[in-house]
Design a binder for these strands. Structure first.
Lengths: 219, 219
DNA sequence: AGGATTATTTTTATCGATAAAAAGTACTCA
DNA sequence: TGAGTACTTTTTATCGATAAAAATAATCCT
């Protein structure tokens, strides 16, 4: 474990389980906890300063999101990674987001355009890698698909987004500067606003394709 | 709660959590536990004869599969149902299974054909509604998509299959006899073996479309 | 009477302790 | 020496008890 673990939450989640769940999740996504690393309950209890019950519950929940692996009678580990698995995430993301994007473009009204525009320009203003870039980036993608009209679809998409964030953080070698990430977002944004489904879908898929290539080059 | 709850497991799952998880899940899918019904830990502890910790863990896991709803500080309920939600399940199933079916047909080799054939004829032999029909039906659908080459994709498909089973069980009014369910399976099977992607996909989508119509007519 | 406030009961979330299982270690005997 | 067996230690899964929170009932005051 090389990096600092997440600090105690300030207030938001009322319950301890929620709190430790969020912190564990953040530490796995950020790469502070390594793939395959053993997650001993006793250790984590001390480290996060909580009891065993909420901790187990959190780990259990993370397992169903594919962020930890659980094996009967031998506890939890941080989920392992592989290029094959990343490919699955990528392909499924393309399939689901292409569908969601088309629906969102079809359903989205004026206020959707407004929200998307705000999200885009907020994101566009900060450089890739800035402290709040991660959050703004997520918001842009969420807004983009927000009018898809299927909670279930969006739930899966979010889960896959998390996986993608994790892979991105784990392979820092991807020199983001070699990519025109901002330009890619701009293309998606403009096509969406123009209601050009094919162009929007192509732009979004291209965006992910580039991420995949970045990953493959260094793993 | 009208029907009998699942009986204690005989042996399969080693751990209590797994065991009670499976039993709760079965009771929700079968409709023995009603949508929206409050799930009090103390009650369930007595009913399933287990402690609170494994029970909470099981409920927690069911929540991430959308079979129970969890609200902070006010416990669990059986997940509610709605036609809108069923539509989401249906649409997502079409999207994911169409993709998986095409991949499975592309990748499946001789032994896939063999397994699928066995599964089909076993299913074909028993009448709809027979005691082991449910299990054979699931197996047929699993085998059909088994060569899709994406664990993640299949995981989501299975989750959605469960949702569909639940909706089917909750709306018994669908007179299965009015539908030619066996014929529908036959069409899917034959098109898959013939490697006719378009026909196979169309047949499978039609299969689900019929289920959807059955549901709408009585809810 | 009726709306707000305070007590009481129920229910949830959490802790600390412990039995059961796995992993690790030392020992035996060919 | 080294495969197998008995003994420790570590770790997991589970229980029973309890504090905190929500729901419910009782009381008060205008």
């Amino acid at each position: 474990m090389n990096e600092r673990l997440s600090s105690k939450a300030t207030c938001a989640p009322v319950t301890i389980t929620e709190d430790v769940y969020a912190r564990l999740r953040a530490d796995i996504l950020s790469g502070a906890l390594f793939p395959g690393e053993k997650l001993k309950v006793a250790d984590l209890c001390r480290r996060y300063d909580v009891g065993a019950s909420p901790l187990r519950e959190a780990l259990s929940r993370l397992s169903s999101e594919n962020l930890t692996d659980k094996t009967e009678n031998r506890g939890f580990r941080v989920a392992s990674i592989s290029e094959a698995q990343y490919r699955e995430v990528f392909e499924l993301r393309c399939l689901l987001e292409a569908d969601a994007l088309q629906k969102s473009i079809r359903n989205g009204a004026r206020d959707w355009e407004d929200r998307l525009t705000v999200a885009f320009f907020r994101l566009d203003r900060v450089p890739v890698g800035a402290p709040d870039w991660e959050e703004l980036h997520r918001t842009f993608h969420v807004e983009l698909l927000s009018e898809a009209g299927s909670i279930l679809l969006l739930r899966y998409i979010e889960e896959l987004y998390d996986q993608a964030v994790r892979y991105r953080n784990l392979s820092r070698a991807i020199s983001d500067d070699k990519r025109d990430v901002r330009g890619e977002h701009k293309a998606v944004f403009e096509a969406a606003i123009a209601r050009d489904m094919d162009a929007a879908t192509a732009a979004l898929m291209g965006h992910y394709q580039h991420t995949l290539q970045g990953l493959r080059s260094d793993s």
